[in-house]
C-alpha cells in the first residue's frame, strides 16, 4: 500500500457534545510522519476532544478525519494513546504487568490471549519506563509518577506508529518528566508524536510544530508561538502564559527575523 503523505489529517472538523455548542469548529490539520506536534490551549479549549476525534473515539458531526491514511477506527490499533488521567481507577484489582499488557490486546475478535511476542513487547516497554520491578504490584500501590509511567509503558507496548499523549507530565515528578521527554525524543526519530501539554519546556526542546486549540485551531509548522496565536487562543490574558515561565525561544521574535 502506498504510504500516505500525512499520518493524521483533519479537514474542516466540527465536534459538539450532545446538545451543546461546538467544542471544535472548522479544524483542519495535517501531521506529517515523524512530526512532533505540541498541542496547547486553555482548559476546556478542546485539546483532549481533539485527540479523541483523531483516535475515532469521538465521531465529528462534520468534516473528515484520517489516521495513517485510513478511517481512525481501522488504524487506531497502531496508535499508542496515553489518556489524560492515569489516577482515576486506583482501587482497580489489576497488576502493573496486566495493565501494560492491555497495550497488546486486540479487541473485537472473539477470545484473545497473549503470545510470546506480546510478552516480549510488554517486557521491553516496562524496562524502558523503569517499572520492571513493579510488575506484580497492584496499580493502586504505586505513586502518581509511577502510575503515569505505567500508562506510558502501556502505550509503548503497542509498538505504535503514532503516539498521542494527553498531558503526560501533568501529575509527575521532575525526574519522570525528564525521563519521559528523553524517551519521546528518542521515539520521535521513528514515530509521529502528538502531545497535549501545558508544559512549554517540551516545546522548546522537542516539538517540531505547535498547534493552539480553543474551539478553532492555529497550526504553526515550527516550534514557536506567534503573538497572533497566543492572542487568538488565550484571548485577553496572554500574561498567564508568559507567567508560566515561557522560555523566550518559544515566542516568535518580532523584529530580528
Amino acid at each position: 500500500m502506498e504510504s500516505p503523505l500525512y499520518d493524521i489529517e483533519l479537514e474542516n472538523v466540527r465536534f459538539a457534545y450532545n446538545g451543546s455548542g461546538p467544542v471544535l469548529d472548522g479544524i483542519s490539520l495535517a501531521v506529517r510522519p515523524r512530526e512532533f506536534l505540541a498541542v496547547l490551549g486553555p482548559n476546556g479549549g478542546g485539546k483532549s476532544t481533539l485527540l479523541r476525534v483523531m483516535l475515532g473515539i469521538l465521531e465529528p458531526q462534520a468534516g473528515k478525519v484520517s489516521l495513517l491514511g485510513r478511517p481512525p477506527l481501522e488504524s487506531v490499533r497502531q496508535v499508542g494513546y496515553v489518556p489524560q488521567d492515569a489516577n482515576t481507577n486506583r482501587g482497580f484489582p489489576v497488576s502493573v504487568e496486566d495493565v501494560v499488557l492491555m497495550g497488546r490486546f486486540e479487541g473485537g475478535r472473539g477470545s484473545w490471549s497473549p503470545s510470546a511476542k506480546d510478552r516480549a513487547a510488554v517486557e521491553g516497554a516496562m524496562e524502558r519506563m523503569g517499572i520492571g520491578h513493579l510488575r506484580r504490584s497492584r496499580i493502586g500501590e504505586l505513586s502518581q509518577g509511577q502510575r503515569q509511567r505505567v500508562a506510558i509503558a502501556r502505550a509503548l507496548a503497542v509498538e505504535p506508529a503514532v503516539m498521542l499523549l494527553d498531558e503526560p507530565t501533568a501529575s509527575v515528578d521532575l525526574q519522570t518528566q525528564a525521563a519521559l521527554y528523553d524517551i519521546l525524543g528518542e521515539l520521535n526519530r521513528e514515530i509521529t508524536i502528538v502531545m497535549v501539554s501545558h508544559d512549554l519546556t517540551a516545546l522548546t526542546s522537542y516539538a517540531t510544530s505547535v498547534a493552539c486549540v480553543n474551539r478553532t485551531l492555529f497550526h504553526h509548522d515550527r516550534a514557536e508561538l506567534t503573538g497572533d496565536m497566543v492572542q487568538a487562543v488565550y484571548g485577553s490574558c496572554p500574561v498567564e502564559l508568559i507567567a508560566h515561565g515561557v522560555p523566550h525561544r518559544v515566542l516568535q521574535r518580532h523584529d530580528h527575523d
Binding site: R52, L55, G56, I57, V76, R77, V79, Y81, P83, N89, F92, V94, D98, V99, M102, G103, F105, E106, G107, G108, R109, G110, S111, W112, S113, R154
Partner: peptide
C-alpha cells in the same frame, strides 16, 4: 470467561479499550 480480556480492558479504561479495537 470468553470475553474476560475485553471486559477487563473496558472496565479499567474504556477510552483506551476503544483504541484497542474493543467495540
Amino acid at each position: 470467561a470468553l470475553k474476560y480480556r475485553d471486559l477487563l480492558v473496558l472496565s479499567f479504561d474504556p477510552e483506551f479499550a476503544a483504541t484497542r479495537g474493543v467495540r
